[in-house]
Amino acid sequence: MSDNVVKLHYDIDAEDFTTAGEASSGVKKTLTRLGVNPEVIKRVSIAMYEAEINAVIHANGGVADVEITPERVTVVISDRGPGIPNVDKAMTPGWSTASNTVRELGFGAGMGLPNMKRYTDEMYVESEVGVGTKVTLIVNIVS
């Protein structure tokens, strides 16, 4: 089935906040082109966009690797940022360490990770303080 697998790679640039979201936008376009169910597309788009924004505002950017198979969409976003000291706490709706500057940009509501969890079928957060964070988001196309 390897010919049915689409793999995408994006560098998430943090230097220009205005371009944040381009990777998620690209994935949304690809999923639309592939004719994936619109509800699945929306769930992947929102979850990936939240993760992409997190990489920009907390970790000075990172990389996104996306794998699309007929069964599922897997998004892995990795950064070399400061890491998350307490992942359980970060999963609490409303919990945020974002600065006022980030809030002025419209983020830092403390809903990023909870939103990612809500819209995915599986979510894994691997994080080490001082090393970085890897977030894996999986949305099933066929349940």
């Binding site: 906040f17 939240e50 809030r103 940009l105 983020f107």
Partner: peptide, 28 residues
């Protein structure tokens, strides 16, 4: 004015009213 709050609720045929005017509003 906080985009993650917008993304917490999925709806159909939506208008978003906001005082935030940066490109991330369009991305959201």
């Amino acid at each position: 004015d906080l985009m993650s709050d917008v993304m917490a609720f999925v709806k159909e045929s939506v208008i978003l009213c906001t005082g935030l005017v940066n490109p991330q509003v369009v991305r959201t």
